[in-house]
Amino acid sequence: MESETAFFLESVKKICPNVTDQELAQFTSKITVEELDKKDFFLQFGKTQKAIGFIAKGLVRSSFMDKDGNEITVGFYAEGEYATHYASFLTQQPSKYSIQCLEPTTMVCLSYQNMQWIYENLPNFEKYGRLVAEEILVRQQARIESFIFQTAEERYLDFIKNHSDLFNRISISQLCSFLGIERQSLTRIRQKLAHK
């Protein structure tokens, strides 16, 4: 547990190098660590996200159900990333997404109430909140634009380039769902690229 918390605090210090040891100690007193098993939900559709989660160890998948009952994968988040439906967290409204563990996962969590307390009492951490929000926004925007501006093949190549470490950690069906293609289309893309 201590190593996971230390990993999280190192990432915080990179974002906010000017925080004092005292401020960091107060910040640390507001976080909790959650151990989740494979297939556990960090967030379920229809529930409000009460805490933002930093993945210290493990892998999660964010998804939603379409009108036909198909589960659509919108993201994979691994060590060093935040697992959140940020709109649900910020507005404290029910989420349209689920976040489920694909592996045993350790999350360092910060509740909505504690985040508000930190903003009010530790102003140096406002930068932390802003930069985390910006990172999440950029990630979501890239996801949206990949479907507007890229072909399925380009999305696949982009995934290989940016997430090659996830290949052996996710299923083919989850990858296809994330790329927005059928399994046979992915097979065709792979065969085409193998012959290039």
Rank of each mutant, 00 (worst) to 15 (best):
Q49T: 10
L131G: 14
Q116W: 07
P104G: 08
P104T: 12
I99M: 03
G129Y: 06
Q92H: 14
A78C: 11
E135G: 15
V60D: 04
R61V: 10
G58M: 01
K57V: 08
I55W: 01
L102K: 06
L90N: 12
L59V: 02
C109D: 08
S88E: 07
Y86T: 09
M107E: 03
N121L: 03
D66G: 09
K50L: 06
M107D: 02
I52S: 05
F76E: 06
V74M: 09
T84N: 05
Q92I: 00
F125V: 02
R139N: 15
E103H: 04
G80L: 12
Q100P: 01
G80V: 09
G58K: 02
M115L: 03
I99K: 01
N70E: 07
G53S: 08
L122C: 09
Q92A: 07
K57Y: 03
T91V: 00
L137Q: 15
Y82R: 04
K50R: 14
G75Q: 13
V132W: 02
Y82H: 10
I136Q: 15
Q93S: 15
F76D: 05
P104V: 08
K57L: 01
F76S: 04
V74I: 15
A133F: 11
V132C: 09
H85C: 09
Q116L: 11
G80A: 09
G53C: 07
G75F: 00
L122D: 08
D68M: 13
L122I: 15
P123T: 07
I99N: 02
D66C: 07
T106P: 06
A87D: 15
